[in-house]
């Protein structure tokens, strides 16, 4: 078992931490925007809803259902040519954002859709009864009412992204997961591995804490 030298280890962990942060936040922001939009489109084109369009609805559903069950490592590998095309490279944390964002988008789309569908139909009806037109109902009633649970869903995806970056690391993304794998798994350097795990746990805890706080704010549970 190799000696662990903290003075060379800590900068390495710091760099890996930054790489993870870039991958997670980059993918998260992109996926949140794309995923919520996608979820909105699926919700709105659902049969009986205001933009009811079974062609669009079925097409997006098919895409989501194709991407979701495929293990992330396979998506990431299969997408390498596309990643190179879109991001200019297929190696490094910036490149890893692409497959991460794609996978996270479809997951967020499903979460957003189910949060929107779960909005109390009575409240939507009240909006219609007050004379709000369908678009107005969507933007001033359905979306605000779905925001609380959506925040929790987004937090869940953020944590899942931290997890997925470890896999992205293996195929050249770098980051904390990659560090843990190369030092802990391949070199039996338990100290490095445990420090990395502790950092990962801290990130997840902080993210969950922040997500819960935001959700409470949105749900007005404080008052």
């Amino acid at each position: 078992m190799p000696e662990t030298d903290l003075s060379t280890l800590l900068p390495k962990i710091w760099d890996a931490f930054l790489e993870t942060l870039i991958m997670v936040t980059g993918a998260f922001v992109a996926a949140a925007v794309l995923g919520v939009l996608l979820g909105l489109v699926v919700y709105a084109t659902r049969p009986g809803n205001l933009l009811a369009n079974s062609a669009v609805f079925n097409a997006i559903n098919a895409v989501i259902n194709v991407v979701r069950p495929v293990p992330f490592i396979i998506v990431a590998v299969a997408l390498i040519p596309v990643t190179r095309l879109v991001m200019g490279t297929s190696i490094g944390p910036i490149a890893a954002i692409f497959p991460l964002a794609l996978v996270a988008s479809v997951a967020i789309a499903r979460i957003a859709e189910s949060n929107l569908v779960a909005v109390d139909p009575g409240v939507i009806e009240a909006g219609a009864a007050m004379g709000a037109r369908p678009w107005r109902v969507l933007f001033t009633i359905v979306i605000p009412e779905a925001l609380g649970p959506l925040t929790l869903g987004l937090t869940y995806i953020f944590v899942a992204l931290v997890d997925a970056t470890a896999v992205a690391g293996v195929i050249g993304g770098g980051g904390l997961g990659d560090l843990a794998m190369t030092y802990g798994y391949q070199r039996f350097d338990w100290v490095t591995m445990f420090i990395v795990i502790a950092v990962l746990i801290t990130i997840v805890q902080l993210a969950q804490f922040a997500g819960n706080r935001v959700a409470r704010l949105v749900l007005h549970e404080g008052r």
Partner: peptide
Amino acid sequence: SAVRQRIGMIFQQFNLLQS
């Protein structure tokens, strides 16, 4: 929409906006 604005409606489950 205009006619609905002239008719108030109340519900068994109140249907207030939680947000």
